[in-house]
Design a binder for these strands. Structure first.
Lengths: 350, 350
DNA sequence: ATGAAAGCGCTAACAC
DNA sequence: GTGTTAGCGCTTTCAT
């Protein structure tokens, strides 16, 4: 029962267009690339031939002839979290593959505690000749403006992990963090079950848009679907194991009926250490983000109950594909660039 | 703080190799493609030059010169389930993109109720000249052998969704179904909570390896982590809404303490209809597979509690990439071809 | 405004 | 065995 077989077709080439339109290759090329110096009448004749023959440009051949190469830069905060470490590793892993496609991939760390550093770096790239930039930056008016300036130079920009709406970036590579927070909320609510109680929320910093969005989604779900749970104000651990080890026991002691912890962002190492030290690893329901080696271990031994992740390798490859498509003026396959909210429990670890 | 910038390098070409080794382009090409007719000494001289210069072949240029085109065929059972419908749609959607890479993509439906049909089709393809085949077939010794015969003709084969170990297929495109079953089990166990009860399992047919593996993973997790739950023998609904509507109420009536239903495979339409008709849509914990429009609606209105999915678009694109890499003798990026077990709850629907 | 011709990196006849 | 040469489909000087 044959269903769908295309005939063995031979695609038309620029030669076919040239012959059909009665012009030379050069003219076809000018029309194809919307270059000036062609009479309107000629343009329409060529366009007609293109449409008639159903011509589709061979991108590989075009790139070969063009000898075009791309320079893409990935900008990351210079912190040392599991997530950023993984991101850097994936960028490094992607470099040789990118090189095969004539893409030079650089990665630079930007001082995270200095708000001006990122702006300075973006402005430097605007002067430098760079084709595309993938950036993970906190949401400030200054970074937004710097990205706008960078875009104005013709460079393409994607935001990574944490979006910067209003910055005129071309694309956001990451998960829907509101939905991720909702997912965390429903896992927390259903795992804790019917009894009332409080939930502690731990975050690196609320300046990052991704963290703020997760918190919002989490709160909304708990409020609407699990009203018997009470979510406490965010505890900012600044990804500092020592700080977390100091504030967490105090917070747990202050409220005796805490039944769950939602770890919104970086700082899992300190959280895990503290929980184990306090002997509270098993009785609390803990939902965290980012499947680092530490988080994986915590999931395995029951310290964590669920970990929500985004595939960092996918993000890096997607950022490269999207930047390239934008530079070449091609469409992207939206579904392929959708970064998934992945849920891991002890039982489905890969 | 610059971290990682490669210098603006120009890749060596075949010309550079030829010059360095003191041979002609043709000889370089012979060595590169392991073609016969080159003295051992010459081979090693060329190989030396390749290594010294760090030459990497430009795949795009090679394909252009080679004018090679690929014929890939996707073989699917001729049933009309949401999953297969989605798979067909994705194949159709991928066709134009594939064509840009000189890949002719065909899709054929094979009679599902006739065990010989698939074998006949595979053998027909073995005679036909086809470069790659992606197949979704039940696991029988006959299909295994037919795939082995097909592979022997030089065609590359990937199994889709349901694996056929021992068939010598090149690759399996799909999720780890044992892990998917485990995931379903833990969601079921944790959502139902501490009280004892029974769980009904509904499947299309246990002949399919993917379904059998899911069942196994599910049983194992329930047994080890939720021993207070008792899993009943599989109810085979054959994806027939009428049949399911007939057997489901009987099964539910026979055991009063059924608290959950695990729908392993096709047949969600009938399940949803029956649950609504019986008024049991809300009180039972239902975990199902494959996010069809019906399943999505059931999740939204609370009939389903969780749906486990594999991204069908990803599967199709992955199958094409993998087949092509195998035909061209290239490596695949394993992480990119990993099909994820996705978990959807009402709150994190995309 | 248009065309002829060379060439991108690689492959494949066909000579020698 | 090895080399010469003519492309693959497209772009790009440089003439006209």
């Amino acid at each position: 029962m044959p269903t769908d077989r295309p005939g063995p077709q031979t695609r038309p080439t620029v030669h076919d267009i040239a012959r059909a339109a009665g012009v030379s290759l050069a003219t076809v090329d000018r029309v194809l690339n919307a270059r000036p110096g062609v009479r309107t009448g000629t343009i329409s004749r060529v366009q007609q031939a293109i449409d008639d023959l159903g011509y589709v440009r061979d991108a590989a051949a075009a790139n070969l002839a063009r000898q075009r190469s791309f320079r893409f830069v990935v900008l990351l905060p210079d912190r040392d979290t599991g997530f950023l470490r993984a991101l850097r590793a994936e960028v490094a892993a992607a470099r040789p593959h990118a090189l095969l496609d004539r893409i030079l991939l650089e990665q630079r760390d930007v001082a995270a505690q200095d708000p001006q550093a990122m702006v300075a770096m973006l402005d430097a790239l605007a002067d430098d000749r760079v084709d595309g930039v993938a950036v993970l930056a906190p949401e400030t008016p200054q970074t937004r403006d710097a990205i706008r300036r960078l875009r104005a130079t013709g460079a393409r920009v994607v935001t990574l992990a944490s979006d910067l709406p209003g910055s005129e970036r071309d694309h956001f590579v990451g998960i829907n963090n509101l939905a991720a927070g909702r997912t965390a909320g429903v896992l927390m609510g259903r795992f804790i079950g019917p009894g009332a109680g409080r939930v502690l929320v731990l975050a690196g910093s609320m300046l990052a848009r991704d963290h703020a969005e997760r918190r919002l989604g989490f709160d909304r779900v708990i409020q609407s679907d699990f009203p018997h749970l009470h979510v406490l104000p965010t505890l900012e651990g600044r990804d500092d194991p020592a700080l977390i080890a100091a504030i967490l026991p105090r917070a747990l002691a202050a409220q005796p009926d805490i039944r769950g912890i939602y770890s919104i962002g970086a700082g899992n190492r300190g959280l895990i250490q503290s929980l184990r030290a306090m002997g509270r690893a098993r009785d609390l329901t803990v939902v965290a983000h980012d499947l680092s080696p530490q988080a994986r271990a915590a999931l395995t031994d029951g310290t964590f109950d669920a970990v929500i992740t985004q595939d960092v390798g996918h993000m890096v490859r997607s950022a490269i594909r999207v930047l390239r498509a934008h530079v070449e003026g091609r469409d992207i396959i939206a579904a392929q660039e959708r970064i998934r909210i992945e849920v891991f429990l002890k039982e489905n670890l890969p």
